[in-house]
Design a protein around this nucleic acid. Structure first.
Lengths: 113, 113
DNA sequence: GCTTTTACATACTTATTTGTATGTAAAGTA
DNA sequence: TACTTTACATACAAATAAGTATGTAAAAGC
């Protein structure tokens, strides 16, 4: 497995690429929040605990750039914007569920509740 | 799902806990390198591309502290130290494979080779 | 006419992660 | 006797990620 670049960054293996798509503190919570269908910006804010505007908007932009989510703007005042998973985004959900499940297993093993 | 702490850090959800165990640039490559059995320190260095001593040793310490790997020291000169997966570490391999597979899928989709 | 709402956007600071350079012990090798 | 090997360890710097504070437009509500 050789190195490769994607969107101007160098990667050493497929794992790093996966993490570019779903890694960091907020991407997986955002993707999970969209699993049932379109959600507006303000509702994402309310649904995802502890997230702030800068993180939400910058991660939404990045997920859009990577083709994981779609943005839909309604020309109303005040504005309304919906976000939804693309096909690629939907494919990531199964993996994110597994990552979440492993975390729950760890909580059990470590006696965390 | 409320917040919780583990080893002195605060977590908001199980995903973050999983990433504490297998996340970062080097933990998954290290764990995969141990999947076939015990490997010595020096061989890990040679097997994992681009890793440096500081990253290897600090991630090994962290993985050990989290119960993912075991360390076995042979009292020889120069020293020999083997690392191997614990049961918990073995359980992580299936998940890491899935993360790797998703990355390979992304490479296909994005036309990276 | 002043405040609120919505969905951002930017500047700046802080925290976390990663990388570089260098050092160590103690025996074996040239 | 000087150099190499092994498995670390530490100080420090650079890079990346995350968080804080503040601002914007334009219409609707009080």
């Amino acid at each position: 497995m050789a190195n490769f670049t994607y969107q101007g960054r160098l990667y050493y293996n497929p794992i790093e690429l996966t993490m570019a798509f779903i890694g960091g503190t907020w991407k997986m919570p955002i993707l999970l929040a969209l699993r049932k269908g379109a959600v507006r910006y303000g509702d994402l804010r309310k649904t995802i605990p502890h997230i702030n505007d800068k993180m939400l908007y910058s991660q939404l932009r990045d997920l859009e750039k990577k083709g994981m989510i779609q943005r839909k703007v309604y020309q109303t005042k005040p504005p309304r914007v919906d976000y939804m998973l693309t096909e690629l985004g939907k494919k990531s959900i199964k993996l994110i569920d597994k990552i979440n499940n492993f975390g729950e297993y760890l909580m059990e093993v470590e006696g965390i509740e």
